[in-house]
Write a protein that binds this DNA or RNA. Structure first.
Lengths: 115, 115
DNA sequence: ACATTCGTACGCGCTATGCGACTTAATGAT
DNA sequence: ATCATTAAGTCGCATAGCGCGTACGAATGT
């Protein structure tokens, strides 16, 4: 799991194994081991991987499907966001319709303010 | 970091070391090692810890302060929610004003639907 | 043509993980 | 009061596996 995600992330950034390992301050073979699934990073290494790739440890480990540092940022327009996160108002969960209305509302508002 | 968080989480739930270890399917001494900081859990163990304690791996590792983010529900009316989590629409972050308007809007809408 | 960079794989030293066994303290049962 | 049970903590040991250097083909560049 982690190996696939690391590999995908690195290729997205167009980084070589060597470059990535240098950024992390570890040997190329060590990082390569993570990607091949031959090795597992230590907890410290894991944290640095998440920081370097600007993602969450949960994503690297496959605990969540959401890529980004959604630990900090939640993009409300991302598809099926409500299947991953339950948003509530007055402890009553938000429907997709309500969210869509809100998004439309904000977009309109911003458009008007832009003028 | 992880040791402190585990210890706090377990005590919150009023679980013994033995009980917790049983739930995880590992030896008591192993889990005790995690809490004392004498040992570090494997990645697999780490994931199971997060599941058992109903939190995120990022929280266990101290990557985030928020106890449960995506995993649980986010109450939009809770005070200073935006200081913990950034909500964005079209990658532009939401202001407190916008959120307040939305909350008011939803409350009004629900009130009307209730009749 | 040679050199350089890429991804991949192997062997090895040594750390430290995970386990059971043991101790000590606290609580419960009879 | 005595024993049994459960709690938390510590230790030694076997061995799994981490991190490293190193080496190998393949694909580039010069």
């Amino acid at each position: 799991m982690i190996s696939k995600r690391l590999s995908k992330l690195r290729k997205t950034k167009n980084w070589s194994l060597q470059y990535t390992a240098n950024r992390l301050g570890i040997a190329k073979s060590t990082y390569a081991g993570y990607e091949s699934g031959y090795r597992q990073p230590s907890l410290d290494a894991l944290k640095e991987l998440a920081v370097l790739f600007e993602t969450s440890v949960d994503y690297l480990l496959g605990m969540t499907e959401t890529y980004a540092s959604e630990r900090d940022t939640i993009e409300l327009t991302s598809k099926d966001i409500l299947s991953q996160i339950s948003l509530t108002i007055d402890e009553k969960s938000l429907s997709q319709d309500e969210l869509n209305q809100f998004i439309a509302f904000i977009r309109l508002k911003r458009e008007m303010e832009a003028k």
